[in-house]
């Protein structure tokens, strides 16, 4: 489990670094303290097994990202921030699940397949986001509204399906 633990702390440090650098580079030194404090709290929570703290810390980082976006911080920082934060959240949850098991059948294979899946998802998300940001198509508000409505409706259906299940 050491590899996955190291991966968690590495992703957390990276998240803090990206956010801090983003705020410092855009002239908000006071705000750069917030991501540092959130990630520090997250690391402490993980160390002390305060599992309730993982998701609030992750949500805090996402809200910070929304704030950074409103402050016109460059999208590269935001994209890297969300990817590293998502990695930390995923690994934290994964460690919690594996922590419940006293024995892991073929541990290295389980860790490897998890990291492979996570890596693939992050890479695909990164590429798609890059494409989404750089590919600009001028459409009317109606189309934009319609396109925005599709994911919302899709998510709604998914939630309804899961409730039924």
């Amino acid at each position: 489990m050491k590899i996955i633990q190291r991966a968690f702390y590495f992703s957390l440090i990276l998240t803090a670094a990206v956010f801090t650098a983003a705020f410092l580079a855009h002239g908000f030194p006071a705000l750069s303290l917030i991501p540092f404090l959130i990630t520090l709290f997250w690391a402490l929570a993980e160390h002390r097994h305060w599992y309730w703290a993982t998701t609030p810390a992750w949500i805090g980082l996402v809200l910070l990202l929304l704030l950074a976006n409103s402050l016109k911080i460059h999208w590269v920082y935001l994209l890297l921030g969300i990817l590293t934060g998502l990695t930390a959240w995923d690994i934290s949850r994964w460690m919690r699940l594996t922590g419940r098991a006293q024995r892991l059948e073929d541990e290295s294979a389980i860790v490897r397949t998890h990291l492979r899946r996570l890596g693939g998802v992050l890479l695909f998300g990164f590429l798609l986001s890059l494409l989404g940001i750089n590919l600009q198509v001028k459409i009317s508000f109606g189309w934009a509204f319609l396109l925005g409505l599709i994911p919302i409706l899709a998510l709604n259906r998914v939630v309804a399906y899961l409730r039924r299940a």
């Binding site: 976006n69 999208w75 992050l122 998300g125 600009q136 994911p151």
Partner: peptide, 19 residues
């Protein structure tokens, strides 16, 4: 993103959506 017509925010939701 829809309210502020912010394409970057919409793109930032994509990694979460894929995950």
């Amino acid at each position: 993103a829809m309210g502020s017509l912010n394409g970057i925010l919409m793109a930032l939701a994509l990694p979460l959506l894929i995950y």
